[in-house]
Measured scan of single mutants.
Amino acid sequence: TGEEYIAVGDSTAQQVGDLTFKKGEILLVIEKKPDGWWIAKDAKGNEGLVPRTYLEPYS
């Protein structure tokens, strides 16, 4: 379980453990880390770190 967020920009994984996503994708945020990198899952079930500045709450 988690909260749904929509990507407001494209982000390409810079290192192992990062999640690549495109603008408009809905991501499920699993954990919000205080350093600004959140753990999220995409629609295909891929999981990784995403920069919170690229996400907005999805409603």
Rank of each mutant, 00 (worst) to 15 (best):
E25K: 01
V50D: 02
F21C: 02
I39P: 02
K32W: 04
L55P: 01
A40L: 04
T53D: 15
L49R: 15
A43M: 11
L19A: 01
K41S: 06
G36Y: 03
I30L: 11
E4W: 15
V50T: 03
P34G: 10
D42S: 05
K33S: 11
T1N: 12
A7T: 11
K23W: 05
Y54F: 13
I30H: 03
Y5R: 01
T1E: 13
L49C: 08
D35W: 03
I6W: 05
A43W: 09
I39C: 08
L49K: 13
G48D: 00
T12S: 10
A43Y: 09
G48P: 00
K33W: 07
L55S: 00
K41N: 04
I39D: 02
D18E: 15
G24T: 02
R52H: 14
N46F: 07
A13V: 08
F21A: 01
K32Q: 06
D35H: 05
A43H: 09
I39V: 14
D42F: 01
E31S: 10
E31K: 10
D10A: 07
K22Y: 09
I26D: 00
A13W: 12
N46C: 07
Y5C: 04
I26A: 03
G17A: 06
P57Y: 06
T12I: 13
D35T: 06
D10F: 04
Y58M: 11
G24H: 04
T53P: 06
P34F: 09
E31Q: 10
A43D: 09
K22P: 02
P51G: 08
E47N: 06
D35F: 04
P51N: 15
A43R: 11
T1F: 13
P51M: 13
K44E: 11
G24L: 03
D18T: 14
D42Q: 02
V16P: 14
L55Q: 00
L19K: 01
D18C: 15
L49V: 10
K22C: 10
V8I: 14
L28E: 05
L49A: 09
K33A: 08
Y5V: 02
A40G: 03
G45M: 04
Y5Q: 01
G48K: 02
K23R: 10
K33V: 06
N46L: 07
G48M: 03
L55V: 05
Q14K: 12
G2W: 14
V8P: 03
S59E: 12
P57R: 07
G17D: 05
W38F: 06
P34E: 13
L49Y: 12
Y58S: 07
R52Q: 13
E25T: 06
G2P: 12
E25G: 03
I30D: 01
G17K: 06
D42N: 11
L49W: 10
L28R: 09
K23L: 06
V16A: 12
P34H: 10
K23T: 08
E25H: 06
W38K: 00
E56D: 06
Y5G: 01
V50C: 04
Q14G: 11
R52W: 11
E56Y: 06
K32T: 04
P34C: 11
D42L: 02
G24Y: 04
N46V: 08
G45C: 05
N46W: 04
G2D: 07
S11Q: 12
Y58T: 08
G48N: 01
D10K: 04
Y58R: 07
K41C: 08
V29D: 01
L55E: 03
Y58H: 10
R52S: 15
E47P: 04
L28H: 08
V29K: 00
L27C: 04
Y5W: 13
L28M: 10
G48A: 03
L49G: 06
K44G: 08
L19E: 01
L19P: 02
Y54I: 14
S59W: 12
I6H: 03
V29T: 00
I26N: 02
I26V: 09
K32C: 04
E3H: 09
D35E: 05
T12Y: 12
F21Y: 05
D35Q: 03
T53L: 10
K22R: 11
V8T: 11
T12V: 13
T20H: 10
V16E: 13
A43C: 11
I39R: 10
Y5I: 00
I39L: 14
Q14D: 10
L49P: 06
